[in-house]
Amino acid sequence: MLGKLIKHEFKSTAHSMFAIYLSALITFGIMCLVFFIKNKTLMVISSVALGAICAVALVITLFAIIGTFNKSLYGNQGYLSFTLPVSGRSLLASKTIVSLCWVLISFIFAISVVLFLVFYWIAQTSDNIKSIIDTVYNMLQTMQGMPDADTALKSIIVVTVFIFIKAIFLIFKVSFAITVANTKSFQKMNTILAAILVYFAVYIVLTAGNVIAAFIPVQLAIATSGIGLSIGDTLMGLSPGEKIFVSIPILGHLFEAAICILLYSVTGTIMSKHVNIK
């Protein structure tokens, strides 16, 4: 059933997203066209347009996630969603997975647009893009403690996992806030206002948790030829004397991962046992 829920959730959310990505594609086409025509004014206008679409895509993604969640569960569509032969947790899981996909798509889209705009304007001002890329690469190579290719790849994977956790954390906080705002305790208050209040209450509590976690000196140490763990002054999993390129505090991420599990469980229970569809 989860697969079917995900399929229909994608269909449902794609309607909100389709227009924005279509407009980006059209702008991209116009930019490629004016590049060869060499019309500077049009190039500037289309670059600004693509940048704006990119920003709008990020904002729309967030609003679409919030809007779809609220409308499909606690609006009239809730009469359909909550009478399907599935559990509240399955509904929540499908919405989280699809929302996560859209968040990641919008981030990948934003990064791609920034990179594209950089290369687009480099290509306009210089004849030799390759020499510029080589110069940047050589600069990075000469930086002290720069990780080797294998370590760099592992680091990217670790950072990607952290980004995933952050995105899921955000989605669960939003889902929890909207769900709590639809319980009996808040029935006399405007749902949107209640959701905002609950979100900020949760945000403050969890930020306090994150701040406490930041004081505990457990970090992921990315060195020239490997990744290890640094606890205070002790290094684990790395050769002695190895040069540390960068250290990333990890307790905050682990705390957020644990809270994600808690929020999923609590939100699922509230959905199944405490929410009344108006």
């Binding site: 449902s12 009239n76 569509q77 009469y79 009478t83 399907l84 032969p85 599935v86 559990s87």
Partner: peptide, 21 residues
């Protein structure tokens, strides 16, 4: 009421509830 009972029941509410798209 739960997933099992919902698989047995065909429910017609007093309002329209299908997604507009």
């Amino acid at each position: 009421p739960g997933p099992y009972t919902k698989s047995l029941v065909a429910y017609l509410p007093e309002r329209t509830y299908l997604p507009e798209w």
